[in-house]
Design a protein around this nucleic acid. Sequence first.
DNA 1: TTGTAGGCGTTATCAC
DNA 2: GTGATAACGCCTACAA
Lengths: 343, 343
Amino acid sequence: MIIASILDIARLAGVSKTTVSKVLNHQYGVREETRNKVWEAAKALHYTPNIAARTLVTSKTGVIGVVYDSFKSPIYSELAGELEKWARKMGVHLVFCSCNQQQASKIHYIQYFMGGAADGVILFGSAEDDSAVIERLMAVNFPFVVIENYYEELQIPNVLVDNVGGAEQAVRYLHDLGHRHIVHVTGNLRHRVAVDRYLGFKQAMLASGHEPTSDHFIYTDGSIGCGPVAAQALLEKPDRPTALFVFNDLIAYEMIDSLHLAGLRIPEDISVIGFDHLVGLLSFKPGIHNLTSMGQPLGEMARATIEMILSLISGQTPEPITQQFKPVLQEGNTCKRREPDAS
Amino acid sequence: MIIASILDIARLAGVSKTTVSKVLNHQYGVREETRNKVWEAAKALHYTPNIAARTLVTSKTGVIGVVYDSFKSPIYSELAGELEKWARKMGVHLVFCSCNQQQASKIHYIQYFMGGAADGVILFGSAEDDSAVIERLMAVNFPFVVIENYYEELQIPNVLVDNVGGAEQAVRYLHDLGHRHIVHVTGNLRHRVAVDRYLGFKQAMLASGHEPTSDHFIYTDGSIGCGPVAAQALLEKPDRPTALFVFNDLIAYEMIDSLHLAGLRIPEDISVIGFDHLVGLLSFKPGIHNLTSMGQPLGEMARATIEMILSLISGQTPEPITQQFKPVLQEGNTCKRREPDAS
DNA sequence: TTGTAGGCGTTATCAC
DNA sequence: GTGATAACGCCTACAA
């Protein structure tokens, strides 16, 4: 690999390094003629600025690092696109990495970014407890924003979705449609997100006068392929519910499919509401079903995130330091009014 | 942002920079006692190596950049996961960026990587003509591998899928099932991938004695949401085909859904075969359909890519410089045997 | 308008 | 075993 440096250009153009640097950075005070000579030399040598060197002296990269737990969920790609859109609008660039649940990998990437590859980092995902990483970032005062995950004991720049409230809203919606026997299909309860939706479900049930028992839950680990298992569990229940609040759209779609195969009609026999509103990516409606779902305002979240990190990078403290967004109910055709009868 | 340097550690531990560096890099020739002092000081100061400085002197980052056109396709996320898996296995790290079809953005990222943020780059996607970028990379001899896109006139490290062959295989499969009237739903024909599948379709049709006319094609731009339009075009055809070879799974699913709504049964009324085999991400089967599709061997492709880039980084020329992988037919339940009759 | 010199934080060479 | 010292490529006063 032969990459030319400013010195090479200087020699070829017959000027000093300073002059070359000035030209390359579009600064005033260089004669037109010299300027041209320099640009030609730069072109001829295929000059590429060494950002390592530049960063070393300016300590600015114009790049923000985004650390994911995994790329594998459609909602993540969706968010990535939104983040990028806003980053471009604000004149910064984003690089993403995924640590595939390996904390060691995550630490490596954070170090990489902190060590001069980026001006700040965005941490996304609630699969892991990142408090160690976060403490590190705080200790050296490196700009960062956390999305989705949160820590009661820490006051950090945070962009959140009100999962508790969203779950409550979903249950209220089903309740208002006349459903009295609602079951919650959980996600992986070791993840914050799943716990919050679980809590929201519980609270809303209590609020409407139903004491949720173990009979009101079907537990899953949230992984791809868990839907059919959950559907089986549902079918085996002695007392079949009239409605389901499912942790996310992927599981909901899987379950709908399985229930379909078992001869149940959606929403006639059972109403289903999901979470995430994945229509951007999945514009085809599996079956003829357009899933009713709690949508996350990803665009607004992305904007808030980018604004926050930029303000941190510029040395300010964002106000407020935590922003929480409300999910929005997106009606499809998988929920149906039901005349209240027994139970 | 207060990040401690080696000098700070040296002062705190009462030793020289050199000694600190040796300890931090696990080199021999430092007394146990000194070693401990240094580690303690490093911990106390929350030391993070400045990779910009390190890169400046070693010109190695241990990181490979991956440039996408867009994150928005599920198959891209899938590939990202595979690349990462192999990268970890080989002891390197990956950072991803997407330029959202903006060539300016792409150039920025490439510069960023070339300028010391990475040891090499992987270019993915055939949405754009990257020959300018590639020439630049070749000119300075920066390690790179191109996936999916290719350039007849350039001998570059390349990982490809045999889209022509895959399309041919799909058509042969339908032909062997007895289908004689097959229509191809194209992707965006400004993309290499779409053109190749289009050519493969044509060749296979010719080979089986059918001269494809404009009647054998439905053209789309490959974007999300184009399926229903294509389905409409199909329904309006005076002479309805018995089978469809669709550019990719996403469009195929969309079409199946629309055709369903129009009262057609799949595969009884019409057989459908797609491309990409997106089951990893979409394990639920839209409707009760499990799409028959030409799968891309993403795992093998990822492995080849990582191996290639590593060999380039280590100064070797990979042999062969271009690797092409064959798609594999994945049978679902959307294609059905048909007794040859008229036409 | 142009050039000289110093330093960013690291690693590497070579004395001590 | 340890410590000066010189790069790496760039930017930026400041001097000419």
